[in-house]
Design a binder for these strands. Structure first.
Lengths: 345, 345
DNA sequence: CAACAAACTGACAGCGCTGACAACAACGCG
DNA sequence: CGCGTTGTTGTCAGCGCTGTCAGTTTGTTG
């Protein structure tokens, strides 16, 4: 059975047409400076005319590159989807490609698998989504292989690797202020997964503002929901049963906030009159529940672009990594919808 | 600035250690048959010992392959996430990799871009998610490049390309039967995006069963919501206002069903007593709204596995494509939750 | 205008692997 | 024992591109 594919145009054909050597064509492909204007144009025209596309395998093999960026994540989901979209977009602009790799952070085999991937594919950089941003083993492998790495919303802040995120602490603080401004004093909080960096930051933001205003944080109103709906449901039920329940609940993400809404409904509470609920992330579900969630919008696509940009800009790696790149913080946005209102009475 | 990466192990080193030629190592790598048991073991041991990983670029260049499978989709979202997870999993088992590529089906430039991708990356196969499964231009390019293609939930059924899906029509019919069995006679339906194959099938399933039971379909209760929440909201409002409203609404997907729930709430309807709502897909949102949605579960991961399997099994492409592969239909599941009940009164 | 530097271009090897084909061994058979 | 046959391994070229370095042209200066 023969190969049915049409034959591909090679760099040599372009070179012949433009009457230069293939090396010179290679130069314009790689945007190397030393090519005369006229020559470049002639080559560009030839490329156009033949509709030439360089073969990535060949380019990679010869130059020991891959034009591939890895996006390592824990689980698929909204956040990943959105992030991926932003990253792919940026990649396209520079003829890079994105390889999304889900890892089970808990598996004992990650190390080996990451190794395989790095060495087989020769990734030019890796973006780590939480909670992988703080996975010691993966970070270790990456460092060992000297792969440029950008961590998204990391927990620790070792100065040796750049990261992109928002100021979760300030955002949570702002949100808490919103609740306090409405008049709430009895506020519950649902924490996220302990291994996410954002979890602690958001909680700190909450307590910062409560303390600053002199409002006590009741420990039985602080629960941990691991960022998932079902856990959020349980947390909400624990908070809401009994007479002395909070008048507002701040969930660390929207999935859990949606759970609070469900739980409140089941108990027959009227929202937001009897209970205000706020989330974090502005996930799709934020506008698919009623009342719609007041939340914090993270500029996920922009973060993805920024992270991808960092890697592309410093590629090929020979140019050195890391540079003195500070943690990059993008702006969040407080989005007021109708899940919040003044407390009843 | 020198290259910081550790040097990589080559096939030659393995060959030397095992005292064979590199070609023989290559043979075991590619699972070619003509290698003596003892030799194979010796080589395997050497590979293990050196922790050798073949360089994909080199393999690709020499063999004119890529070990890459493309997953083309329209927009990111739950469905994609889930599908991607399944596909990546299958890829890993065979040392393949998945390249997710979002395309704007409406853009006039898709053709060129698809071309670039196919030729640069030399994808060994492509999986098309709806609505791209029926995108004439993309299908054309793929055929032209003789790339094995699997279409997910396609509309048309040209026998020349395999596809994977569920029996949307029967599923919708089953769901409709559920509603009728509960006693509903006034049933509204919200259609999806016209360019999705499933849209028509699901609607047909609905009318099939209604007709079979002799229950009339009211045209003002059939609306089109394009599978998105906001449109669903409008559709629901149109159906629900006025006195003669349906007692049940069948939305073609869960996002729109969630919208129906919102709309019903805003009008103060009690669910499911005054209105039953059902969706389709069993998306995450199905269990994040209250009441939780009765819906149809699609085995998305299994579909992904099946599609990926088809491509891997027929790779390298020299082995011929297409084979006489019929449309593959996986089983759906009707999931009863609490958004449905007998009609009021 | 010679002399030299800077800008530009090309020749060539080789990246790590596989395809085609040759070579060689082991075996069965007349 | 010669010969073909099958099974197993090796040789070698070359996939399409880029790195190195040498060669050529152009520009600048005294």
């Amino acid at each position: 059975m023969k190969d049915l594919r049409p034959p591909s145009v090679t760099i040599q054909q372009v070179a012949d047409l433009a009457q230069v050597s293939s090396k010179t064509v290679s130069r314009v492909l790689n945007e190397e400076p030393a090519v005369r204007e006229g020559t470049r144009n002639r080559i560009l025209k030839a490329i156009e005319q033949l509709d030439y596309r360089p073969n990535l395998n060949a380019r990679g093999l010869a130059g020991d590159r891959s034009f591939l960026i890895g996006l390592f994540c824990d689980k698929p989901g909204d956040y990943l989807s959105e992030f991926q979209a932003g990253a792919v977009q940026r990649c396209r602009e520079s003829a890079f490609h994105l390889m999304v790799e889900p890892w089970d952070g808990a598996s004992p085999d990650v190390g080996r698998q990451v190794n395989t991937l790095l060495r087989q594919l020769r990734l030019e950089g890796v973006i780590l989504l939480p909670p992988l941003s703080d996975h010691p083993l993966i970070l270790g492998k990456l460092a060992e292989a000297a792969i440029p790495t950008v961590r998204i919303a990391p927990k620790r802040e070792p100065s040796d690797s750049p990261s992109v995120g928002i100021d979760d602490r300030t955002a949570a603080r702002r949100m808490t202020a919103h609740l306090l401004d409405l008049g709430h004093r009895a506020i519950g909080f649902i924490r996220g997964r302990p291994d996410h960096g954002a979890t602690e930051q958001r909680y700190l933001g909450f307590t910062d503002e409560m303390r600053a205003r002199g409002v006590p944080v009741k420990s039985q109103w602080v629960q941990t929901g691991n960022f998932v709906f079902l856990d959020g449901l349980e947390c909400a039920e624990r908070m809401l049963r009994g007479p002395g329940r909070p008048t507002a609940v701040f969930a660390s993400n929207d999935d859990m906030a949606a759970a609070v809404i469900c739980a409140a409904r089941q108990r027959g509470l009227e929202l937001p009159r009897q209970l205000s609920v706020v989330g974090f992330d502005d996930a799709p579900v934020a506008t698919m529940v009623w009342p719609q969630l007041t939340t914090i919008r993270q500029p996920v696509r922009e973060m993805a672009r920024a992270a991808t940009e960092l890697i592309i800009r410093h590629s090929p790696r020979r140019r050195g990594w890391p540079q003195p790149i500070p943690r990059q913080q993008l702006n969040f946005e407080l989005i007021l919808r109708n899940s919040t209102g003044p407390p009843h009475g």
